[in-house]
Design a protein around this nucleic acid. Structure first.
Length: 297
DNA sequence: CTTATGACCTGATAGC
DNA sequence: TGCTATCAGGTCATAA
């Protein structure tokens, strides 16, 4: 379940081993994990639900960066883009979903388990980059260039959670009668926050996840923006949470365990006030909060 | 337009 | 031991 911190840590770990490398071979094991601009909107490989993927048509390997030089790795929210030719060449938009992994393998190294590897890129130094995703909620979207990526793929997303301002969030939520947690999870409002860091940031900002987003004051939003920055940056430095499915670009699980304040801690005492942490569901998601520290509806 | 819900998918875990 | 049931949650199609 990579959220912003896991993707940013992945970006940083892949940057030194990918930049400047040329792609010399691309192997697609599952075509439906890749979506190209020519594929029908929504694809038709799946009946309904899930992330819409591509038709079974053969993908042109240049779209998957064959013969291109990797020039930059950029992130917006939970998305990770691999750019070529300084943004003028083809680009990839990786969305890891719940269990997606991008793993760099040095020359001669292989994964202990080869299962669920959908795409593999052979690089000019003999190393490989592989995309693996057991549950296939994620995928790889090909883009013509950086401009195409940013308009077509990233355009609908809200501002990145690390740099969003309280003013932007007020504008985007002042008419939304949803619990603030549901608004935080909406990627078109704010990009990068998932279930873990929604709960963590609301706890840090002392806001009840049940408050309606339109009822938060300007001061509430300032506190929430600050809490997001602290919580997300701490998690990035720690190498992402040690969530069960997350591994970084080297295939390592997070070394530094993050002790979440509320996520996964239901029933335990609040680290700030000692009250018993409660749990409920908001929009089908498990939500943990401290009713004492985070008063509200 | 808004918000809510079910479906997608598999591995880990709990319970018998 | 092995089997079954439940849970995890990101996001899209559909419903309301």
């Amino acid at each position: 379940m990579p959220e912003l911190p896991e993707v940013e840590h992945l970006r940083r770990s892949l940057e030194p081993v990918l930049l400047g490398r040329h792609v010399v071979r691309v192997t697609v094991h599952r075509r439906d994990i890749v979506c190209t601009p020519d594929d029908p909107p929504g694809g038709f490989s799946r009946q309904s639900g899930g992330i819409a993927h591509a038709s079974p048509r053969i993908v042109r390997r240049a779209e998957l960066l064959l013969d291109a030089e990797i020039s930059a790795l950029e992130r917006h929210g939970k998305r990770l883009a691999i750019l070529s030719n300084h943004g003028d060449g083809p680009a990839l938009d990786a969305h890891l979903g719940m269990t997606g992994q991008l793993i760099h393998l040095a020359k001669g190294h292989r994964l202990t388990s080869q299962s669920h590897i959908h795409v593999s890129w052979r690089l000019s130094d003999g190393s490989r980059l592989v995309y693996r995703d057991a549950r296939r909620f994620g995928g790889i979207w090909t883009c013509r260039d950086r401009e195409d990526l940013q308009t077509r793929r990233w355009g609908p997303l809200g501002p990145d959670a690390l740099t969003a301002s309280s003013a932007e969030l007020i504008t985007r939520t002042k008419r939304t009668r949803r619990p603030v947690k549901a608004a935080l999870l909406d990627q078109t409002v704010l990009a990068g926050v998932g279930n873990i860091y929604a709960d963590e940031s609301l706890h840090r900002a002392r806001l009840s996840p049940f408050m309606l987003a339109c009822d938060l004051t300007a001061a509430d939003w300032c506190a929430l923006v600050e809490a997001l920055r602290v919580v997300l940056n701490q998690a990035i430095v720690a190498g992402g949470s040690t969530i069960r499915d997350y591994v970084d670009g080297m295939g390592r699980t997070g070394v530094h365990q993050i002790r979440h304040a509320v996520y996964g801690q239901a029933g335990k005492p609040c680290t700030r006030c000692g009250a018993r942490l409660r749990s409920a569901r908001i929009g089908q998601r498990q939500t943990v909060w401290c009713a004492a520290c985070q008063p509200g509806p």
